[in-house]
Design a protein around this nucleic acid. Structure first.
Lengths: 344, 344
DNA sequence: TACGGTCCTGAAAACGTTTTCGGTCTCGGG
DNA sequence: CCCGAGACCGAAAACGTTTTCAGGACCGTA
């Protein structure tokens, strides 16, 4: 019964020797013919190609990788596969590498440092050409170290070593952008309800908001940034407090779409119309939440797929020679829906 | 500037020869010492191990794979990375393989058949030990073929070739389970609003529902299965029609959590209390939708992570010899929250 | 001292490619 | 006829391991 059901294991695996023999040439010539080397007669080449076709030969990438210094593989080291942030990045990266020459090893460390070391060892032993490290949350994370034999690009969560190259969301710019949009809508009494203050992203978005307001000589409605949690419940609670303290607020910028849903909920309960009385903005552009809200939420999209694609491109460039360093910020994108509109 | 920034490429890569030289033995002995072969003196072994440690040696997996018939890699061929269904499966599989011996190649074919062929070729040329094919939607998909040199397990979307092994959600059972739960709650006038009838999953869940009702001598409230689309809007529209036709309905089983949200919405608008007047069930256990609904949704979890883990285990078994065939159904799990409760 | 045995070690082959280098063949020109 | 130049091909080395097999050292026994 051994391996009998094993999908009809179609005989021995065909190797270059078989092709060469069938074509009546040496392996060397066969190799050159298949790789488009010039020093082989046209007639010979076609004979080899025909033989390869007939045997449906494809080269053993392991043997190729063993010789050259390129294996055509990269490692994608994520800390949190279930997180909805790493997926688009991963997609973007996968997309950039394409089904061309490179294949991607996916490793999820589950946020565990030793599991990460394990995966790293495994990837290095498989001689990947490079690594992309995708963080679970947008905060600084420990570097993998400087003495790795391959280039590394950090995505979403920057490395704590400035000598590494990191690609991150421009959260300060996003805060500015969101606030700018609300200002463009003619709002002047703008509040900001956001999540866990331990998240750098929360701090940065708040900073962008405050900066932009300061440029207009304005202050935050409610007198503070409402830090709390990344949950709908906190959005509700904070909104109630906010309304009590500053009933004249005319715009609320939420730190996430979830929070924004909570905000909308309380505004509805209070009979406050969105957007005519209060404009509401979310963050993340999480389709299922933002697009199905009532009214649909204006929000900020972090362009995570783009970030992933760029990370892959930077890594390619690095494999071919040069790797920059420092932190590169990717601009966010404003997605306007119905929850914001000009006053009047 | 060439490769100068390249993460401090720490000298030449250390190979077994280096270890052997440092330990003063041959590569053969070094290999045996590192691999725990018995025919090497203890003193020699420790010397080799020390040398390996000192040089921080790790073996080249390509060379190892070239020799043995096992590379310790598997391919994960998904059709739809953004889909929220493939991710848990992928996690389960990644989890089962662990950070142990096996590494996972992730390939997203984007639902494109020729891209899939491309990926397949690439994976085979990398000599993966096996493949898991994850479908985008729970319907039959074309087999990769019988003459592959490695075992294949299909997950979520079954192969159209019964000789292949497929692991799928037991949608009929899920329909039975949901309906059974509503019956347990004392409901008798149960309606079923679901999505696109072109989905086998929709048909199967409906079948399970009808079967279970028939066992009780009951018929579907509303007189039909309400097929439509997998959207909140359809949930709303269908509920309005249902209420017009059968105002006495006392339970609604929705084919997805999104549809269920639409159902809840209309029930609220009509002033119908959930669950005291009408019980509502969703499907998918999509946390952000189900848990944050008001009231939180009782729903069905497809156990996708388990499915992924099982797929990986089946593949392992196949690599070691035997691969079954046919379709294996994975039972779903009832998640009770507040949207269903016994009558009275 | 010879001998069978045990224990350990190393040389060499193998895996499937690519690449280098030397060789053969042809051909045209002197 | 000889020679140099191409053009084309194949032998062999290389990549880094594992594994097989032969042989050396050492021991105890006869």
């Amino acid at each position: 019964m051994k391996a009998s059901g094993s999908a009809g294991n179609a005989g021995r695996i065909v190797t270059l020797r078989d092709v060469a023999k069938l074509a009546g040439v040496s392996v060397a010539t066969a190799s050159k013919a298949l790789n488009g080397q010039p020093q082989v007669r046209a007639e010979t080449r076609t004979r080899v190609l025909a033989a390869a076709e007939q045997l449906s030969f494809f080269p053993n990438a392991l043997a190729q990788g063993l010789i050259g210094q390129r294996t055509g593989t990269v490692g994608l080291l994520t800390s949190d596969l279930e997180g909805r942030f790493s997926i688009p990045i991963l997609m973007g990266a996968e997309d950039a590498f394409g089904s061309g020459q490179t294949s991607v090893f996916l490793c999820d460390a589950r946020g565990d440092a030793i599991r990460e070391r394990h995966h790293l060892r495994a990837l290095l032993s498989r001689r990947v050409d490079g690594l992309i490290v995708v963080g679970a949350r947008p905060d600084t994370r420990p570097s993998l170290g400087r003495d790795l034999p391959v280039p590394v690009v950090y995505a979403y969560a920057p490395s704590d070593d400035p000598a590494d190259l990191s690609l991150v969301t421009d959260n300060v710019g996003a805060g500015r952008m969101a606030t700018g949009h609300l200002l463009d809508c003619g709002r002047r009494r703008i509040a900001h309800i956001t999540g866990d203050p331990a998240y750098g992203a929360a701090q940065d978005r708040a900073k962008g908001t405050l900066d932009r307001l300061a440029e207009e000589g304005l202050e935050l409605a409610g007198g503070q940034v409402w830090f709390g949690m990344w949950s709908e419940a906190w959005g509700r609670g904070a909104t109630r407090m906010l309304l009590r303290r500053s009933p004249d607020v005319d715009a609320i910028f939420a730190g996430s779409d979830e929070i924004a849903r909570g905000v909308l909920d309380v505004l509805h309960q209070e009979g406050i119309d969105v957007p005519s009385q209060v404009a509401v903005m979310g963050f993340d552009n999480w389709a299922i939440l933002a697009a199905n809200a009532r009214p649909p939420l204006t929000t900020i999209d972090m362009n995570l797929e783009l970030l992933g694609r760029l990370a892959a491109q930077r890594l390619f460039a690095a494999i071919d020679g040069t790797l920059g360093s420092g932190v590169e910020s990717i601009a966010c994108r404003l997605v306007t829906r119905d929850s914001t509109a000009p006053v009047g």
